[in-house]
Design a binder for these strands. Structure first.
Lengths: 135, 135
DNA sequence: GGTATTATATGACAAAGTCATATAAGGTGA
DNA sequence: TCACCTTATATGACTTTGTCATATAATACC
């Protein structure tokens, strides 16, 4: 795999290859909504729920908490402080009606994206299946 | 659909809703490599090829030209000036061996992403199929 | 009291995408 | 010749998404 040549490594450090390269992005928001719809959670728990299933995208804590805040700013989720059975209080999120409408729109978009990925894979396989024997 | 509340509209203009919202991104580079592999093109032609098929993601000219340059910086494509039959000279791109290796890696990643999207859609449908009758 | 765990959060930055606009060569017609 | 259109490449300012490192604070446990 080629390394990124644009990003200069920091002083005294090995070159750190761009981790984004090779990953389709923009998929965290609908997952958060769906997980919260399955049952209301706080950030830390969502972090664990994301980590448990490898079929879900990995997530960075900073991104998770910031995304939750954004979703709340936009009225897609609502939060309330909850003094759990132990540990510090946590912010419990749940999806609003607007959030559900948003999720439906997202699901359609994801369906379309899935079809585009399928089209790509089909074109990709077609190219290399045909080319294999001739080159 | 909810509107973005973070982005302020410009003076005298209607609020312009975030077009990114609701779209899975990060998919332009492999498409460029595959299109160029099908046959070498210059930027303007790629722009048209992207526009012709709705199963491909839309692309902005600025992003296209910049992405081509990045791919070249990274050694994934090579370019040469080509004085076409008419109009100004254009930069003709073709994929390198490194670019092909990169595309193969991308294809695996896209396969995995497609499966993650399927998993999302499945969980989404499962949630709403079950919930529909009860609410 | 000191340390680990639980929990939320911010700052600096990289990467991808959007929108507007600049620049320039070449073709065409008045 | 000049104005204007098409073809073609490119840059600047900005937003959004994601990464990595780190800060902060309450609670639990020894």
């Amino acid at each position: 795999m080629p390394r990124c040549r644009r990003q200069r490594p920091r002083e005294g450090e090995a070159h750190r290859c761009c981790p984004l390269r090779g990953r389709v992005r923009g998929f965290v928001r609908p997952w958060l909504l769906l997980l919260l719809l399955q049952h209301p959670s706080h950030g830390y728990e969502l972090l664990e729920r994301f980590g448990q299933d490898e079929r879900m995208p990995g997530i960075d804590p900073g991104l998770l908490y910031r995304t939750l805040r954004h979703l709340e700013d936009e009225g897609l989720v609502r939060s309330s402080w909850d003094a759990g059975p132990r540990g510090p209080a946590r912010r419990l999120y749940q999806v609003t009606d607007e959030g559900i409408a948003y999720l439906h729109a997202w699901a359609e978009e994801i369906q379309a994206t899935k079809e585009r990925l399928e089209h790509f894979l089909q074109a990709y396989r077609h190219h290399f299946d045909r080319g294999e024997g001739n080159e």
